[in-house]
Computed example of a mutant assay.
Amino acid sequence: MRSFHLHLVSDATGETVTSVTRACMVQFEGVHAVQHNWWLVRSQGQVERVIAGIEANPGIVLCTLVDTAVRGILEEACRRMHVPCIPVLDPVLGALAGYLGAEMHATPGRQYVLDAEYFARIDAMQFTLNHDDGQLLEDVEDADIVVIGVSRTSKTPTCMYLANRGYKCANYPLVPGVPLPAELEGLRRPLVVGLTKDPKSLSDIRRARLRFLNHDEESDYAQFEKVREEVASARRLFSRHGWPVVDVTRRSIEEASATIIQLHGQHIAKIEGAKTEAARPEGVK
């Protein structure tokens, strides 16, 4: 395993440069990055501490610093040390500025301003926490997305990821022999999505869960034939209601959520189209 030092430098929380790094590093096998994180770097004193860290462990530098003065100090030091310094946002910012003919505002952390969108995201997370695992169904119509599925199909983590993207979510666990609550039968506003998983994979996950809890691994909860029937029954329910289904067997939370977000966009477009059609005067096309 080849190892190297990688310095991530950001004037904010480091979320952007970390995501870019992760997306790139997974394309290289047999390579391990010793990652050094330098967040909230906004002054000369702070960038000088970063430079000292790079001198102690020389390696490639990826940065998201919009303040040209602070970034200039870092870039000059990297040139002196003969280590690459890559400003990962420059190509995108340059292209946008050129296309829009607009001047960029070099304001660190501007994407985290406490605006209406930020507080809407906080509200979405609170709503999702309150409506986890079938709770507070009386106002589930206020959700943007309702996720339904059998046990261990990643309903909660999927909803929390979606909430962080600003969607109010609720999830409901399907239990064998328990009918679907009336509150979920006639939903109109929210997108309802069914999550499913390969029965063999689901059985293995449940068995591991029971083992962790020191419970009987051969109970109906994890027994393959029972799990297969449970999954088939859930699929019949989804089909009967016309709910879209997302198979999470080989999908990460992020990938499943991306699919759900696309479905939500289509759902909203359908609702808006129906409203427009209803508002159109009779005989007008």
Score class of each variant (00 low, 15 high):
P91W: 04
Q27M: 11
N214C: 13
N37D: 10
G72C: 07
F238L: 01
H5V: 00
G109L: 09
P199T: 04
M25C: 01
T259Q: 15
A208T: 00
E218Y: 01
C85H: 11
S239F: 07
G186H: 14
A274V: 14
V146P: 02
E230A: 08
Q27C: 03
V26N: 03
S239Y: 08
V245W: 02
E218P: 00
D247I: 11
P199D: 07
E282H: 00
R235W: 07
P190W: 13
A232Y: 12
E103G: 13
A278M: 11
R280A: 15
Y221E: 01
P91H: 00
N214M: 15
M125T: 09
V227H: 05
E272W: 02
K197L: 14
T16K: 04
L137W: 02
R189G: 10
A116R: 12
I205T: 14
F4G: 08
W39C: 14
V34M: 09
V83D: 09
G177D: 11
E117C: 08
M25W: 01
K285P: 04
V83L: 12
E103Q: 15
G265N: 04
S19Q: 11
V26W: 02
P199L: 05
R80Y: 00
G265D: 07
R228A: 10
V231N: 10
A222S: 14
V26E: 07
E55F: 01
A95W: 12
V178P: 02
G134P: 15
P181Y: 06
V17F: 12
A77E: 14
V17N: 10
V193N: 13
A222D: 03
D67Q: 04
